[in-house]
């Protein structure tokens, strides 16, 4: 390190403060010996460097004006506790919201619950026949509106589901009462992949109730569950229906995803519609039953049910198919009364 007139100042303070050591100190002292003019300036500070003393009496006049207002929860004696309560309240709200939403979705699913009604244990074919009979034997529309909503949305074990699905894959002919003619209502035909799983319910038009309008048909509206049994299987949207313009139109309108499908008549999602339909039917699960009987459930139904009733909903019907030895719900359908204007 060469010390000269251009850089000696940067070493001067360290030299005076005793922070130069070794070769650098020797080089600096050699520079001072060789340059007496610069040395006099450095050595004049040997006997005392002027240092400024702090002036504690000089203070900022208005420190309070610099400060910021402290939120109340920060100043509270038990602010930690207050924060916890805020967290608890937020968590409680979140849990309630998730519970309400979860129950709403859950009621749209088939469940393996032995506590469900005996009808839920029957093969799907029988269930759907019963549903159809109920549909066509209606004498009191209001009574029939929710009477069969327990139908095929519930099922037993996988093996029972499998048997039911195989049975469903065969066309089911609904017995009819021969007092009506010229009315054709074909409902609930879901041509799902594979084709062998197509479900046909052929409804004899003569079984319509006596007070039914001859031009009244039955529409089948697919409800595609958000969480279909095993949710990785997406329901087929290529639903093929037999003749029937109203039915076809309804299907076309409502084959969008379950969660985003909003009923144009009510503004409700399909899950909400199903939940309201289940109001008069036994709950599929104990949790659903508790919710149904709870104040929240009653309040929910009081809001939703008046909106659903004008749909003249008769029953939800669920179709299953086999996939890797398991039964998967592939679609739920609302059978509703729909007037045909032709």
């Amino acid at each position: 390190m060469k010390i000269d007139q251009n850089n000696y100042e940067q070493y001067a303070l360290d030299y005076l403060e005793g922070n130069l050591a070794g070769d650098i100190r020797k080089a600096f002292e050699a520079f001072l010996d060789a340059h007496p003019e610069e040395a006099s300036g450095v050595r004049s500070l040997f006997d005392g460097m002027p240092r400024l003393e702090p002036e504690p009496w000089v203070t900022y006049p208005d420190k309070q004006a610099l400060k910021r207002a402290v939120p109340m929860y920060e100043t509270a004696p038990h602010r930690t506790l207050a924060r916890r309560w805020i967290y608890y309240a937020c968590a409680a709200v979140a849990v309630v919201a998730v519970s309400v939403l979860g129950v709403g979705l859950y009621r749209t699913q088939p469940v393996d619950d032995p506590s469900t009604s005996s009808m839920a244990q029957a093969p799907a074919t029988v269930i759907m026949q019963r549903v159809a009979r109920r549909v066509f034997s209606i004498t009191d529309r209001q009574a029939a509106r929710f009477a069969v909503s327990r139908g095929a949305t519930s099922a037993g074990s996988d093996s029972e589901k499998l048997a039911a699905a195989r049975a469903v894959s065969r066309p089911a002919t609904i017995p009819a009462k021969p007092d009506r003619e010229n009315v054709t209502a074909q409902t609930a035909v879901a041509q799902l992949t594979p084709a062998s799983m197509a479900t046909n319910i052929t409804v004899d038009p003569t079984s319509t109730p006596d007070d039914a309008d001859p031009e009244e048909a039955f529409a089948v509206t697919p409800l595609i569950p958000l969480l279909t049994g095993i949710s990785t299987v997406r329901p087929s949207t290529s639903v093929v229906l037999p003749e029937g313009p109203i039915v076809r139109e309804m299907i076309t309108e409502r084959t969008s995803d379950f969660d985003s499908a909003v009923d144009p008549a009510t503004g409700l999602t399909h899950g909400q519609v199903l939940l309201a339909m289940g109001a008069d039917a036994p709950a599929e699960t104990a949790a659903g039953e508790r919710f149904r009987r709870s104040r929240g459930g009653k309040f929910f139904r009081s809001l939703v049910q008046p909106l659903v009733e004008p749909l003249d909903v008769l029953s939800p019907v669920t179709v299953y198919r086999e996939n890797e030895q398991r039964i998967i719900e592939v679609g739920s359908y609302i059978v509703s009364r729909k007037r045909v204007n032709n």
């Binding site: 002036e55 000089v58 900022y60 400060k67 910021r68 920060e74």
Partner: peptide, 18 residues
Amino acid sequence: TEIQYNVCVDAYADHLFR
């Protein structure tokens, strides 16, 4: 936080002002 900031005001305002 506001409290930590106000502590800074108490601790450093005079030094800074000088």
